[in-house]
Design a protein around this nucleic acid. Structure first.
Length: 367
DNA sequence: TTAGGGTTAG
């Protein structure tokens, strides 16, 4: 691997490439790259190994990540705090909080010092696994240790409070982060809007949105996706429609999630005609439907006992290589069992059941 | 700007 100008790759070049390949799950190529790196007599360093550890952890493959850590130790490279933070994330992602805590506790024994990211990662794990008390403990403990919660720490904790319905505590924390000089960013904003919507406070979310007005914060399609979904789920599909039109008028481009939440909102209200129109508009707008779109629409049709387009949608899913997820599948099974669907559809339907669901005990006996 | 943490659809 030599560039046109005869420049040789170094450890930085390889790390960048390996990291990029890992990010896209291209493990084979990443491992080939690692091998080539060694053939070039360039030793992988702590960052190289940590990139691999992190990539495995993000897929929940903690055993593989630990294997990489063992290899790096064998090669005389010492894992650092970044390496262990990734591992904590991996265990948190799997919901294995006892193990995550063990890694956290082992950090000090290894002579390393947990940093803001370490605390925030474990705190996030506790929040995601709905153990808000433990999360609060971490939040408190880090300040005792002299670590200052940053924007990410606050955002994580705020989301945790919203998830368990503690909206007052969440809002108080937004004020506190301001007072501490940690300015909420785009991500915090999304977390707050989503948290309000999910706690039946969509009016508050909308007030905040209109208060923010034409700021850059509101030029993010994710903000619209959150609000359109929130409005729809709170029975305000007309508000959702206005928001959708608003983002178009503003020159923003709806993405596949925007369409999906809007279609989902129409289906919820039984407005299947509107849902179908939007579905058809996706392709011509350069934003083709994805597997979620099909599942949302199918669920909408089934729940509203509107079977005209079902076979066509299943056929299109098959053509596109999409499959049914567990919840759509179980809805289908109910309708088949109740004799509501034409049995001629069964063959096509069977092709869309993913292998991993074939032996699912909750879905058997449908024939 | 060589590796780490927080946001949206089913």
């Amino acid at each position: 691997m030599v560039s046109d100008k005869g420049i040789l790759p170094n450890v930085i070049t390889y790390n960048s490439l390996i990291c990029g390949l890992c990010k896209f799950g291209r493990w084979d190529e990443a491992s080939k790259m690692l091998k080539q790196m060694e053939d070039d007599n360039i030793s992988p360093n702590v960052k190289t190994f940590t990139a691999l550890v992190d990539a495995f952890c993000k897929e929940g493959k903690v055993k593989e990540a630990e294997a990489v850590i063992n290899i790096m130790i064998e090669r005389g490279k010492v894992p650092n705090i970044v390496t262990y933070n990734s591992l904590i994330d991996g265990y948190c992602l799997r919901g294995e909080m006892i193990k995550a805590r063990e890694i956290f506790d082992s950090i000090t024994l290894r002579g390393l010092v947990p940093d803001v990211v370490t605390y925030s990662s474990l705190l996030n794990g506790y929040c995601k696994n709905l153990n808000i008390e433990k999360a609060e403990e971490m939040f408190h403990e880090m300040t005792v240790k002299g670590l200052k919660p940053d924007v990410v720490t606050y955002s994580t904790m705020i989301q945790g409070f919203f998830q368990v319905g503690r909206c007052v505590a969440a809002r108080r924390l937004v004020d506190e982060m301001h007072a501490q000089g940690q300015i909420p960013d785009q991500c915090t904003y999304g977390i707050v809007l989503d948290g309000l919507c999910n706690n039946h406070l969509v009016e508050d979310a909308l007030s905040l949105f209109y208060l923010v007005g034409n700021s850059k914060l509101n030029s993010d399609i994710a903000v619209y996706n959150i609000l359109i979904d929130g409005a729809g789920k709170n029975g305000k599909v007309e508000v959702a429609r206005i928001l959708f039109q608003g983002l178009i008028d503003k020159g923003l481009q709806p993405d596949v999630r925007t369409y999906n939440v809007m279609i989902s909102g129409f289906c919820r209200e039984g407005q299947l005609g509107e849902a179908k129109l939007l579905f058809l508009k996706m392709e011509e707008s350069g934003c083709p439907p994805n597997d979620v779109t099909y599942r949302v629409l199918l669920q909408g049709y089934l729940k509203n006992r509107h079977y005209d387009d079902v076979e066509m949608l299943l056929q299109e899913m098959d053509d596109r290589g999409y499959s049914l997820d567990a919840s759509t599948l179980s809805l289908f099974i109910d309708h088949i069992a109740a004799g509501l669907l034409d049995r001629s559809m069964l063959k096509l339907f069977g092709k869309l059941v993913p292998k991993e669901l074939l032996n699912d005990p909750s879905l058997c006996d449908w024939e």
